[in-house]
Design a protein around this nucleic acid. Structure first.
Lengths: 228, 228
DNA sequence: AATGCTATGTAAAGGTTCTGCAAAGGAACC
DNA sequence: GGTTCCTTTGCAGAACCTTTACATAGCATT
């Protein structure tokens, strides 16, 4: 099958060079020359992986990545100036899957893309079920809304994110660090009780069950138990 | 709990340096100084990710990786000499998830490990329901729960870790030092009775059998005997 | 058998860490 | 200024890990 890659890079020459090489290697390539277009394409078009330059004329690549991460888990490879360690580490913390220093060797880029796609394919082999019902809850991701017995829950943006992540992993434990990263988009620092508060508020809004449907796994995180 | 990383590196100094740093960053670290040991430990399934040097005294890191890939999809990060492009690309082709040139920046290593683990954790959501049976016990690793005759055991985090290790080695003896390292994530010091206490509590929760299903091997460790 | 040393079992106490939640502070938006 | 929401702060309570202390069991030596 053809993998679809989105190339976000403002240097026309480099972009076209890479695009040509990737095409030759069996990728379907889409291109964007700035952050805004890149974001639109990434969110709209269907692609499997994004190659994202950090230095862009309009929005920073990191900003694009952050925005992307707030909505999807599309794999992203960052292109950074060689040796710029700060960008690189910040990039990983925001949620990049890999980074490549410029100027980059196209063969290496392809190898890395394949490594990431291989992992994603492997992990998803169980099949992505777009099922959006979890017992008495129904998730409508288009509208960013969650219904309980067809009654919409009045959730804040963050609460929605958290519950959405918990539902996506319903039945398994989600670590606090991961929940923080995926829902709040930042790292869990010591003494940060934000997450606990959101969970507390969520529990209130979900009504009281016994045992509570958002279960605490002490020292680890939380787990959503599906209730009919 | 903590992420467990296996460090396969023959340079004692570098290995210990990295081990110390990773421990400080919240990883539980296991070490191997050659490919053979590394392979054994990696297949012993007590880690979440492997950091693998390519240059090893016995088997090449690539060979270890190939062998590992034939049996599991455990995430692997390769350590290679800087600039050695061949190794790097071959590494990806064999199935590495990432590579880092030596000498490497520990912070970057940690950032990369987190990036990979984050993706793995996310993708494993609805994935393979890891469920294993050991007589009347059933281990559900998603939930981090162990059932006895379909009744969930009320275990603490540490108790779960310990029992999980014992089950994985059911029928054979697990040394106390190893049990300590794998389940508690630290070294067994003299006069430390913590482990004994956890075993004692576990036995209570598992009910009384004669002989006890967690058998003591005096001077060595413990062994779980499967009971139907 | 008796002795002594060491390893293990376990109750109880101690202390640390984690969590729940109310309330107050801030930031962003209108 | 008001509203809404996210975050911080503080405290109380719970859950848990570890230590302590003593009893017991295994093993080697005498």
């Amino acid at each position: 099958m053809q993998n679809r890659v989105l190339l976000v890079e403002d240097d026309d020459e480099l972009r076209e060079l890479l695009a040509r090489y990737l095409s030759g290697q069996g990728f379907t390539v889409r291109e964007a020359a700035n952050g805004k277009d890149g974001l639109t394409l990434a969110l709209g078009q269907h692609c499997d992986i994004v190659v994202l330059d950090i230095m862009l004329p309009d929005i920073s690549g990191l900003e694009v990545l952050r925005e992307l991460r707030s909505q999807t888990h599309l794999p992203v490879v960052l292109l950074t100036a060689r040796g710029d360690e700060t960008d690189r580490i910040v990039g990983f913390e925001v949620g990049a899957d890999d980074y490549i220093p410029k100027p980059c060797n196209p063969r290496e880029l392809v190898a890395r893309l394949h490594a990431i796609l291989r992992r994603v394919a492997w992990d998803q082999k169980a099949g992505v079920k777009a099922e959006q019902n979890y017992g008495d809850l129904r998730l409508e991701s288009d509208h960013r809304r969650i219904y309980q017995n067809d009654e919409p829950l009045d959730l804040t943006a963050t609460e929605y994110e958290i519950l959405q992540v918990l539902l996506a992993h319903a039945g398994s434990v989600v670590r606090k660090t991961d929940l923080m990263q995926w829902a709040l988009g930042r790292r869990l620092e010591a003494f940060d009780r934000t997450l606990d508060m959101h969970i507390s508020n969520l529990r209130k809004k979900l009504g009281s069950d016994d045992p509570p449907r958002i279960e605490t796994v002490r020292g680890l995180g939380y787990s959503y138990r599906v209730v009919e």
